[in-house]
Design a protein around this nucleic acid. Structure first.
Length: 511
DNA sequence: TTCCGACAGTGGGGTCGCAAT
DNA sequence: ATTGCGACCCCACTATCGGAA
């Protein structure tokens, strides 16, 4: 199949906002794709490059050669280039990859170049990623959406599922089950402002549990015999980086196991390190034996999806947890409280937050493991901080925010100098109305109307919510806000009344 | 007819390793 | 030795569509 056919479909998908129309366009393309190219077409149209790292990003694609006059590239040919890029990533020279990129883009027409660039930088914005793709696979293969969804959750990716569905139909989808050693999509949590709001999102009178939420790295652990594999939230294999977790899982008294949990670095006294410490440890590929000595990590499991030939994903949570507790030593199970009393749940939250943990997850004990879905019975609650900060500058938006001032630079007041210290940026929490308002407002306050950044007189105060204050090498105060988002603009406060850098220092996550 | 769940989009800070400067 | 880039950890929030109620 020609890449052109995929690009054309992508353009038509992007041209409509109707999801049913998007679905039809994609389904039609999948039906016409040759069997051996369905997997690639599915991946490309959902913005996924099966080769995850190519070593080429936005910079490597900033300057493209003249496009080809006519479409001749096939998706198989594109795949061949991507494979070669992956092979050279990290070992070959930049020049080798640049040559491969040049060769590929020379044989692509202009719209194909645009699509390929989006694919390689993860910016396919056509209003259809995985969700619409699932519906399209179901329609093209004439199977129920629920079957496709389940297969994708268990297989991890849509491409292989599309290939199976279109060649083997329902029977082929039924063959896709939980496989020990192959990662499935992790179940995700919704969020709520506080414990009582979290409980309120669950059906009335269901039994629920509250679990301590650890600020570390999500890990899915698979064990079969003496073989252990560990996967990240995005299904990357992280086994080699976490030998102490491998040892812990290998020692479990079961032949085959699939566990879900969090890995975190702890201090000698058992209190958690800030996320940055755990993140640095797990991101590093230096000698694992050395890292294990200097920054050991500990597993805390909260779910059991398979044990000794028995799949538990469809069992209610209380059953999975009972099996987990029966298998895994208590020291490796997330602290949890089963209760029907919101006051006790609140107390549990207060306790673990005071111990330095991130918050809690409230879980409906009656629900199965809804792989890959958010908010189906898991609700997280974290403490929230707020500050009134001054807007120092603002960046032009892109995509649907093109032409609007979008991303605001935030500063705390420094009483020593009378100036402001930048603590980060945010584009979150803004309604369309706020975007329109702030575009006008900051144009008025502008001292420098740049193409990228507009600098303003620091006169506008904004109320910001955030999760914490972390160490920063980027900002002058050495601190940055984690997950900052806008609550509201404060026209009742002048910049001279904004919160100070000392108030921010008091909230640091390190000492 | 209204409500609400799921999805896509718009980006945030930090860390690492590697290649180029 | 430093800097820029790519990849991948953590992630919040709003707008919208379309099926459920």
């Amino acid at each position: 199949m020609l890449l052109y056919d995929v690009v054309d479909a992508s353009a038509r998908v992007g041209a409509t906002r109707s999801r049913t129309t998007k679905t039809q366009v994609i389904a039609e393309l999948l039906r016409t794709a040759p069997a051996d190219e369905v997997e690639l077409v599915t991946a490309y149209l959902s913005g996924v490059l099966p080769q995850r790292r190519t070593g080429v990003g936005w910079r490597g694609l900033a300057q493209l050669p003249d496009p080809a006059p006519a479409a001749a590239l096939t998706v198989t040919a594109v795949d061949a280039v991507m494979r070669r890029l992956t092979e050279t990533a990290g070992v070959g020279s930049t020049a080798t990859r640049a040559a491969l990129v040049r060769e590929l883009f020379e044989s692509a027409t202009e719209p194909e170049q645009g699509f390929l660039r989006g694919l390689m930088t993860g910016e396919i914005r056509q209003g259809a990623l995985d969700g619409v793709m699932l519906a399209a696979i179901a329609e093209a293969a004439e199977v129920p959406q629920a079957s496709v969804r389940r297969a994708v959750m268990l297989a991890g990716f849509a491409g292989p599922v599309a290939a199976a569905a279109l060649t083997g139909g329902q029977a082929a989808l039924d063959q896709i089950t939980l496989e020990v050693g192959r990662p499935l999509r992790p179940m995700l949590a919704g969020s709520a402002a506080d414990v009582s709001a979290a409980v309120d999102t669950l059906p009335a009178d269901v039994p629920f549990a509250v679990e301590c939420k650890l600020d570390g790295i999500r890990v899915q652990a698979h064990k079969r015999g003496d073989q252990v594999r560990l996967f990240s939230r995005s299904l990357d294999d992280v086994t080699e980086r976490l030998p102490e977790i491998v040892d812990a899982v290998a020692a479990l008294p079961a032949e085959s196991v699939v566990l879900d949990g969090e890995v975190i670095a702890l201090r000698a006294d058992g209190s958690p390190h800030p996320f940055q410490v755990t993140g640095a440890r797990t991101a590093s590929s230096k000698d694992p034996a050395e890292l294990r000595r200097t920054t050991p990590v500990t597993p805390w499991f909260f779910d059991l999806l398979h044990v000794d030939g028995r799949d538990l994903i469809d069992a209610p949570a209380h059953e999975r947890i009972a099996a987990l507790v029966g298998l895994v030593p208590e020291s490796m199970v997330v602290p949890r409280l089963e209760t029907q009393d919101p006051a006790q749940a609140q107390e549990f939250f207060d306790h673990w937050v005071s111990e330095g943990h991130e918050g809690v997850v409230v879980k409906d004990l009656s629900v199965p493991y809804a792989a890959g879905r958010r908010g189906a019975g898991w609700v997280k609650v974290k403490p929230r901080h707020t500050l009134d900060l001054a807007v120092l500058a603002i960046e032009w938006g892109s995509g649907r925010r093109k032409g609007l001032l979008s991303n605001i630079h935030l500063g705390a007041r420094d009483p020593e100098t009378g100036g402001f210290v930048m603590l980060g940026k945010t584009f979150k929490g803004m309604t369309d109305e706020m975007l329109a308002w702030q575009t006008t407002r900051f144009t008025e306050l502008a001292t420098d109307l740049g193409d990228w950044v507009v600098t303003v007189r620091p006169e506008q105060v904004v109320e910001i919510a955030f999760d914490g204050v972390q160490r920063s090498s980027r900002y002058p105060g050495g601190m940055a806000l984690r997950f900052a988002r806008v609550l509201r603009y404060r026209d009742d406060k002048r910049a001279e009344e904004a919160d100070t850098i000392d108030q921010v220092r008091a909230l640091r996550d390190w000492t």
